[in-house]
């Protein structure tokens, strides 16, 4: 509800655990990979996504309906969690969910850049973050990037965006703006975390996420061989890289792979790294980082049952479910076989 008062992990964890039970398991995924888009929609209608499918069914159809229903459900569930939690628990959860605010800001900026239709932008937003409806509406009504920056003036994105806007005006590319949003999000993510044991574990998880993001960015840069300064994409806060080491490693793919294999994540990411070397497939590496995060999240949720960690564990599992169903639906639309789709899913 808000960051005041004492935190109430008992209540939130009880509700979240009940919801976790209704997430799809292996069995459901196996069924879903053998269905067409309309059957998937019908299957979802009979599960916890029923209300969302019904609300959007008249306006959209096919894979779009599935996608928007997933986004809507995700936003509602995460909004609920923020509604329930109080005190320091709210702060810890909001840190992570602000990534949807960052996503929304980037979507709106891109929409303003391409002069997209307001309703088209609106359907792509995921209203799961901290921004209330009023601010989202004002963001949607902003018809230029300048206006978007103005709406965000009093948020954490205000100052960085203002600075990046000057750069954008010179170069007319969106990269500085998007980087500014991402960096504002990651800076807030890890600053001033408290000291008790569950919070430290949460911090370790967040650091792993930052590390993986840095690793994926560096791998992409190293593989593309493009002449971009890797340090510009560096995200602070992780354990694995420093700005200097990332810039050095991103020049040589083999060094980078070796460095990651020798790190504390080597055990979890080892098979994916070998695959990366052999088949040159970055997708497998991205899936491996996702699976490692999810497995870590699962473990996280059981060690300290009454703390923020089970909530984060649920948030991760839910995000993963939404992405899996989206992958199934999109894969079906593109005519992939059930086996190919299954290799795209991240299930622990």
């Amino acid at each position: 509800m808000s960051a005041v008062g004492s935190s109430n992990p008992e209540y939130v964890v009880a509700r979240v655990r009940a919801r976790r039970g209704s997430l799809y398991g292996d069995e459901e995924y196996r069924k879903l990979t053998r269905m067409g888009p309309s059957e998937i929609a019908r299957f979802m209608e009979e599960s916890s996504y029923g209300a969302d499918i019904n609300a959007l069914g008249s306006r959209h159809g096919g894979v779009d309906l599935i996608e928007y229903a997933l986004n809507r459900n995700l936003a509602e569930q995460f909004d609920d969690i923020l509604d329930w939690s109080e005190g320091s628990l709210y702060d810890l959860i909001a840190r992570y969910l602000r990534k949807f605010d960052a996503w929304n800001v980037k979507t709106v900026i891109r929409g303003a850049y391409t002069d997209a239709d307001q309703s088209a932008i609106e359907t792509d937003l995921i209203r799961a973050g901290e921004f209330d409806d009023r601010r989202v509406r004002r963001l949607l009504e902003a018809d230029s990037i300048d206006a978007v920056v103005e709406v965000l003036e009093d948020t954490i994105y205000g100052d960085p965006l203002r600075e990046a806007y000057a750069e954008y005006e010179e170069t007319d590319v969106l990269v500085p703006l998007e980087n500014a949003v991402d960096r504002a999000f990651y800076e807030r993510l890890l600053s001033g975390l408290g000291g008790d044991e569950p919070t430290r574990q949460y911090e370790a998880f967040l650091k792993a996420e930052v590390d993986f993001r840095n690793a994926i960015n560096a791998l992409r840069l190293a593989r593309s061989g493009a002449d971009i300064d890797p340090a510009a994409y560096f995200i602070e806060g992780g354990d694995l890289f420093t700005r200097g080491s990332l810039a050095r490693l991103a020049r040589n793919l083999d060094d980078l792979v070796e460095y990651i294999a020798d790190s504390q994540y080597g055990e979890e990411l080892g098979p994916a790294l070998r695959e990366l070397e052999e088949a040159d497939s970055l997708i497998a590496f991205e899936h491996a980082t996702d699976a490692a995060l999810l497995a870590y999240g699962d473990r996280l949720g059981t060690i300290h049952p009454v703390s923020v960690t089970p909530v984060i564990s649920y948030i991760l599992a839910k995000e993963r479910e939404v992405e899996n169903i989206r992958a199934i639906a999109r894969g079906k639309e593109a005519g992939l076989s059930a086996d190919e789709i299954e290799s795209e899913l991240v299930i622990t």
Partner: peptide, 14 residues
């Protein structure tokens, strides 16, 4: 206090 709030949370779901 703790059990009660957890119980109310669980009841709200089921």
């Amino acid at each position: 206090r703790g059990i009660g709030s957890a119980a109310v949370g669980a009841m709200a779901e089921d």
